[in-house]
Computed example of a mutant assay.
Amino acid sequence: MGRGARGRRAATTAALLAATVTAALAAGCTGGGGGPGDDGRGSPKESGQGESPSARGPSALVVKIDNASPARPHTGVDAADVVYAEQVEGGLSRLMAVYATRLPETVGPVRSARESDLELLRQYGRPTLAFSGAQKKLLPLIGEAPLRAETPGNAADAFFRDSGRPTPHNLYLRPERLVPEAPGTSALTTGFHYGAAPAGGTATASRTVRYPAAGFTFTWSDSRDRWLVGMDGMPATTADGQRMAAATVVVQYVKVRESAFRDFLGNNTPYTETVGSGKATVLRDGRAWDVRWKREKAVDGTTFTTGDGTPVNFAKGQVWVVFAKTP
């Protein structure tokens, strides 16, 4: 491609991003209204978004979920196949839910994207990412990423505000308006293995992961055969009053560093590195295994193995991956 063609392409991409940001701001519904990280509002329009789903192949729906106290209880998170928990500005936490085998009627509250989301999502091929917006300087990176970006700025009919909740914790998504049907298990290109529990393990009643201003606790329930989820010292429930629970929990120790971005208060946005290798703890069946994780390239899934290299099987059901800073 010649310099002139590259220049025209770059100008076209910039124009599309600018037009979408303008539309999003005019709609007044992308940024989340002053929460951490929402200092720049916008919603990139993905180039190639007009291509048909069949041309892209089955792809997962991924939704960024608000996890501040006013955002709870959540809706639709219990239907996700995988839930990622990460640290964001101010030591708080945010969730990212991945849907492949079933789609709930509603998901939310929806919040903004982060730079490290782009690295994490490369393993899913070309997923659909639903989020409320992003910092203005991050928009070009999202626009260049191999994903289908969907926000209220370019898919207004898929999002709505709940008048019974305070802004910015009241934006919700109707998944079927973005993805007509669940793509199926083939969209879960995570590298995870499922099956019988590995040998050994240590009997474990609960496990807590703490961020500077947030925390997750997973407590084993024999009666439900699941890890009951707690957030910030309180039981985590869905909007219909059901206790959130996971079949498998992974505490993955990763490098968390500063990024090039800050929120509107000046707090740096943490960047969670998910490519590389390190230690992890896998919780299933009331037991814990200390394992190794490895992800050589961004397009690869993450493998979890015992000391001799044997893959660690997860239990059938929802998986929570909590990213914790390597000690």
Rank of each mutant, 00 (worst) to 15 (best):
A205C: 13
K325C: 09
S54Q: 14
A10Y: 02
S132M: 01
A79C: 07
G32C: 06
L141E: 09
A100M: 06
T272P: 06
A60Y: 02
E144C: 10
R207F: 14
G108K: 04
Q242L: 10
A55T: 15
W289M: 08
D117Y: 05
A26N: 13
V249H: 04
P270C: 00
Q242V: 09
R122E: 11
E176N: 11
R295D: 09
A18V: 08
R102V: 08
G215H: 06
T189A: 12
L25M: 09
Y84I: 05
Y172Q: 00
S206M: 14
E144V: 07
A5W: 11
W289H: 11
G241C: 03
P104I: 08
D78K: 12
R94L: 05
P109I: 04
S47P: 13
L118S: 06
P36R: 00
A11Q: 05
S93P: 07
E258D: 13
L188C: 09
V321T: 14
F218T: 05
D162Y: 00
F131Q: 03
R207N: 11
D222S: 11
R148F: 15
G143A: 15
L25D: 15
S112W: 01
T248A: 03
A130S: 02
R56L: 12
R114H: 03
E296W: 12
S47H: 13
K316Y: 13
P127S: 09
T22P: 12
P109F: 01
D290H: 14
L141H: 12
R9K: 04
P127D: 08
A26L: 15
T281N: 07
V254I: 04
A149D: 09
A18W: 09
P109R: 06
G37W: 04
M231K: 15
L120D: 05
L228N: 07
R111K: 03
V321G: 07
A149L: 02
R122G: 08
T190C: 14
T106H: 13
N67F: 06
Y84H: 04
L173Y: 00
A324Y: 01
S69P: 14
L171N: 02
V107C: 07
P327M: 01
M1L: 15
T190V: 09
T22H: 14
T208E: 13
A85T: 09
R56W: 11
N170L: 01
T151L: 08
S69K: 14
R9E: 10
R165D: 13
R56V: 06
G4M: 12
A10Q: 05
H169F: 08
F192H: 14
R8M: 01
Y172R: 01
S43E: 09
T167Y: 15
A24V: 07
V282Y: 01
V251K: 08
N268V: 04
A55K: 13
S206P: 06
S221V: 04
L129H: 01
L17C: 10
G125Q: 08
A14Y: 00
R111W: 05
G57R: 02
R6F: 08
K279C: 03
G309N: 02
M231Q: 10
L92Q: 07
G278S: 01
G276A: 08
R243I: 06
M234C: 12
G164M: 00
F216Q: 11
G215N: 13
A145S: 15
A71T: 04
